[in-house]
């Protein structure tokens, strides 16, 4: 049954009424008003719902709100802004990566967490870090170009 849950999202506390078992995804989308991330599978198989929880990329579609605790949630909307973009966002625009764009959260949020940990990764390391994420339009080539470009920007 619904309880009061306080979530720290994009630097702000939000108190919502929610079933503690409800996945974070629905809190973000419907209670906190963040249209990203997206529902892709609800099974942690595609990544369309990916956000950062204390800097780690997690699948919000299978993360109960009760598991978030005091953790700090960051979504794509606050990773960077047009005025102050994250290098991955710059690279994504420069490389014109997306087609439909529904998968973006998975790739950018996962790559952002990865590049934060790993400087100057090889292409093989990038591919391994992104393994399992889905893009149905087949923009794989562009995704890899953008992540490599961002990695170079991040030194």
């Amino acid at each position: 049954m619904a309880q009061k849950v306080t979530l720290n999202v994009n630097g702000r506390d939000h108190t919502i009424d929610a079933d503690p078992d409800m996945p974070l995804l629905y809190a973000l989308r419907n209670d906190i008003g963040l249209n990203n991330p997206h529902f892709g599978c609800g099974l942690a198989q595609c990544g369309a719902c990916t956000v950062h929880l204390d800097g780690q990329a997690i699948r919000s579609c299978v993360t109960p709100v009760s598991a978030v605790g005091n953790g700090k949630v960051v979504t794509l909307a606050s990773l960077g802004t047009p005025e102050k973009p994250h290098p991955l966002q710059t690279a994504y625009v420069e490389e014109q990566v997306p087609q439909c764009g529904y998968c973006i959260n998975g790739w950018i949020m996962t790559a952002a967490a990865f590049l934060n940990e790993k400087k100057k990764p090889t292409e093989a390391e990038i591919k391994t870090a992104l393994e399992g994420l889905k893009c149905r339009c087949g923009t794989h080539m562009g995704i890899l170009r953008a992540v490599k470009r961002a990695a170079e920007m991040m030194g």
């Binding site: 963040l34 249209n35 794509l76 909307a77 047009p82 973009p85 625009v93 997306p98 764009g101």
Partner: peptide, 19 residues
């Protein structure tokens, strides 16, 4: 010419039909 709709997607500013 580049697509102008890439940036809004990348900055989570564009609504999909799901939104």
């Amino acid at each position: 010419i580049k697509r102008e709709d890439v940036a809004p997607k990348v900055f989570a500013q564009e609504d999909f039909c799901t939104d």
